[in-house]
Design a protein around this nucleic acid. Sequence first.
DNA 1: AGATAACATAGTAAATTAGTATGAATTGGC
DNA 2: GCCAATTCATACTAATTTACTATGTTATCT
Lengths: 136, 136
Amino acid sequence: MHISVKTGYAVRALSELALNASEKPISISKICEKQNLPIKYIEQLFRNLKRDGLVKSIHGSKGGYLLNRELNKISLKNIMKAVDDDFSHNFCYGTKEHIDYCKGFPCGFYELWDEIKDHMENYLDSIKLEQIISRL
Amino acid sequence: MHISVKTGYAVRALSELALNASEKPISISKICEKQNLPIKYIEQLFRNLKRDGLVKSIHGSKGGYLLNRELNKISLKNIMKAVDDDFSHNFCYGTKEHIDYCKGFPCGFYELWDEIKDHMENYLDSIKLEQIISRL
DNA sequence: AGATAACATAGTAAATTAGTATGAATTGGC
DNA sequence: GCCAATTCATACTAATTTACTATGTTATCT
């Protein structure tokens, strides 16, 4: 029950993008320089963020990334879901693959785990990038 | 952001204990037989649960485990904290050891992660074993 | 053409997870 | 007193995950 370093990196990188928002894209190397993050790793994360529509990219020299939504339309849930690929399955399963944790699916605890999942997702969805950067 | 199989096992084992509560202790092997859980693994978990005062044990033949608190005094948070040893550190750290995720501690995001941690803990603490078994 | 970017894929060391293996200490019943 | 059933304790392990690095290719600006 913890948030990954990966998610933390993504939040920092996106905050950097948000704080310096303009029409001009910002490069990964610039972001990583400011926030002291591993460039190649963050590149990967941004491809996922792009896939989920949180950012858009501009190729080539003078290229980089831009936010693709308003600050109050990007939630922590969005970020985690983009970056952490197995974010929030029904906990009944434990890991990505069903390891027969509860034989006889759905077991008596299925609803419990589902409720918890929903609560967590809703909570994380209520935390927006806007609110995150407002406190920096 | 997920709940471990370990926690799931602990919940199932404790529920089994709760459903068959009496003055007589129930053995790990009985619990595991009923819930189809790995005995040696559950033994380990129960030592942690005992350490945290959630259960008490009786040695020797005819021995086993008993709940040590009322059903509404055992929360999911209690269980997770007992069983999952690095449950809920400030997310700023990522893993047990500070990997210099945020140099210049506390970084600007520290409060955010702390708030999330608190919210999660409070929520998990509001889910009691009593409520869990009432739906089985 | 050359520099600077994003994009893509594969590899990798360390840690974590979900166990197993082996055995010691304790107690009840015969 | 012995045996079986139990908790208690520690060490090992295979598979997975995590947080990266390496090695490129492709696209765009000057």
